[in-house]
Design a protein around this nucleic acid. Structure first.
Length: 173
DNA sequence: CCCTGATTCGC
DNA sequence: GCGAATCAGG
């Protein structure tokens, strides 16, 4: 899509109206917000009433191009290793409020601990809140990443299923 | 993770 | 001139 006079005019108007680049891009169609921003800069009408924050950037920040770049690993020592304290595994406690998450309702921030047998069709997930970056809720994360040293002599059927699945998971991953 | 604008630079 | 990739933030 080319920047016809009409489209440029529209861009100017929308930009003056305070619409964001992505909104303008959506309205114009055929262009991305990057294209809009690029055009805005080229037209010299950048920085209107700086929305939000001045967003200053003193450091030009060298941007390595994929072309002819060996792609060096940028690992900083700042990356916190995160404390890895071995914590005692609590009880499984798979039921949050009676409801389980299905594959359809499972969100990113939900515990993905499998519950039930996929073969029987009643396969669900724990679904409790999981911390960002964690696939499981606290309780299940501890079970998944730490072999349970002790197990009750008589485990319930539900616990047995969980244990079985946990063991399978450990073997496969 | 959604969003914002800013910048660089291969095309 | 164009805009994807990437950045620094909110």
């Amino acid at each position: 899509m080319a920047w016809t006079d009409e489209r440029v005019e529209m861009l100017k108007k929308l930009w003056a109206d305070g619409l964001s680049a992505s909104q303008i891009a959506k309205q114009l169609g055929g262009v991305t917000r990057n294209a809009v921003i690029g055009k805005v800069h080229r037209l010299g009408l950048s920085g209107r009433a700086t929305p939000s924050r001045p967003v200053r950037r003193p450091t030009p920040t060298p941007r390595p191009r994929p072309t002819a770049q060996p792609a060096k690993p940028r690992v900083t020592a700042e990356t916190a290793p995160a404390t890895r304290e071995p914590v005692k595994a609590p009880e499984p406690e798979p039921l949050p409020n009676g409801e389980f998450a299905t594959v359809l309702t499972l969100k990113d921030s939900m515990c993905k601990w499998p519950i039930g047998d996929p073969a029987t069709g009643d396969f669900r997930f724990c679904g409790r809140k999981s911390d960002p970056g964690n696939a499981y809720c606290d309780a299940h994360a501890k079970m998944a990443y730490q072999p349970q040293q002790k197990r009750r002599r008589k485990t319930s059927d539900a616990a047995a299923v969980l244990d079985s699945l946990a063991a399978t998971r450990r073997l496969n991953f």
